[in-house]
């Protein structure tokens, strides 16, 4: 328990170990730690940035999507309008066609009727002449009475 030169020895040992730690150990360890700290900080920041980018991209995608949806709706709307228009047009064309056909048919009917009437009229005239000739039994000159007969036929 005496104070001896051990004191000096320990002081020197202390100096040596502190110097070793100061020069060779501490700087290496602390720089590695700082570097890792920086790496982690950078990584966290990058993750943050990626998150922000993702949110940004999602927002943009949403924007695009809603734009596309609106466009689609517009196109459908337009198509529907066009279709209605086309149907309308077809309807009017068909109507016109119908009227045309109807008119033609009516004209045909009229013509047929007239023809039949003409024929009937002729027949009636013949019958009337035959009847009259039988009644009068005289040889009635046909040529003399043609005008009369024609008049009769038109009256019929």
């Amino acid at each position: 328990m005496n104070i001896t030169a051990t004191l000096i020895g320990q002081t020197l040992a202390f100096a040596v170990f502190v110097w070793t730690c100061w020069k060779f150990i501490w700087p290496v360890l602390i720089s590695a730690m700082r570097e890792r700290q920086k790496t982690i900080a950078d990584g966290l920041e990058a993750a943050d940035k990626a998150q922000r980018d993702l949110e940004h991209a999602e927002a943009r995608a949403e924007e695009h999507l809603s734009g596309a949806r609106a466009e689609a709706r517009q196109i459908v709307e337009q198509a529907r309008g066009q279709a209605a228009e086309m149907v309308e047009e077809a309807k009017s064309v068909a109507q016109a066609e119908r009227e045309r056909i109807l008119e033609a048919a009516q004209a045909d009917i009229e013509q047929e009727m007239n023809r039949a009437r003409e024929a009937l009229r002729g027949r009636v005239a013949e019958l009337a002449i035959a009847g009259a000739s039988r009644i009068v039994s005289a040889d009635l000159d046909r040529s003399r009475h043609d005008a009369l007969l024609d008049k009769l036929a038109t009256e019929l």
Partner: peptide, 29 residues
């Protein structure tokens, strides 16, 4: 022996343990 003597055991253990510190932390470094 007076002042000019040395406690070999204390000194040796102290230096050995200091060296142990340097070795462990040196390996880590």
């Amino acid at each position: 022996m007076g002042f000019w003597s040395i406690n070999v055991d204390s000194m040796a253990w102290a230096v050995a343990l200091g060296a142990l510190f340097c070795v462990i932390f040196g390996i880590a470094a």
